[in-house]
Design a protein around this nucleic acid. Sequence first.
DNA 1: TCTTCTGTTTCCATAGTGGAAAGTGAAGCA
DNA 2: TGCTTCACTTTCCACTATGGAAACAGAAGA
Lengths: 103, 103
Amino acid sequence: MTTTGEPADGFDTTIHAPNRLRICALLDAVESAEFGTVQQQLDVSASVLSKHISVLMDAGYVAQNKAVRDTRQRVWLHLTETGRTAYQAHVAALRAIVGDPGD
Amino acid sequence: MTTTGEPADGFDTTIHAPNRLRICALLDAVESAEFGTVQQQLDVSASVLSKHISVLMDAGYVAQNKAVRDTRQRVWLHLTETGRTAYQAHVAALRAIVGDPGD
DNA sequence: TCTTCTGTTTCCATAGTGGAAAGTGAAGCA
DNA sequence: TGCTTCACTTTCCACTATGGAAACAGAAGA
């Protein structure tokens, strides 16, 4: 039995938190994004973003890799396969709750 | 200036909390619902539901009225106009974040 | 009056969230 | 080689949120 602490319907509280939902949505739309870019889009402090990323990484939803741009190392973020699946399941759960358009 | 504490895009943390989102979604779909019915659908304790309803009432999103059914008084819940508007705006904000179907 | 039903409120423990500031590691520069 | 800057990361702290359990309250019956 895999205990995730989440109901079986795909609703995922780890993803549901407002900022993390935005992070996942953002990352779902691209292959990867720079930490700084994500920070700008969310308009949050680096510490807050870093902590949310930690949570998502602990859940196995996000992974990082570092690459140099403009002489400086930067963190690139991307959803893992698990993360993408969980995110899409969560969105499906949200749609199930609020009703799809056309309902 | 009306300070709601929410960003202007319709995203509403009062509504976003998982159980409250479910409550609002449920109430948005009907004219009104009995406390007990909502409790069953959400599968939460009466105290937890009562507290969430309090929060929604404090926000002006939900109102109650009492009516007798089967000899007992029961609480009926419904979204206020403000509540319905806020809920629909929140759903729109969610769609803006996760992307509408067909994007 | 005593009990039951239907919520409501209180008490409590725990987790989530963010801001600020300190810390870390890699570069760049004198 | 030291010093500084940049790009995060971690820690510290305060506050809010959430839920379970139990006490409480009002209406209706026995």
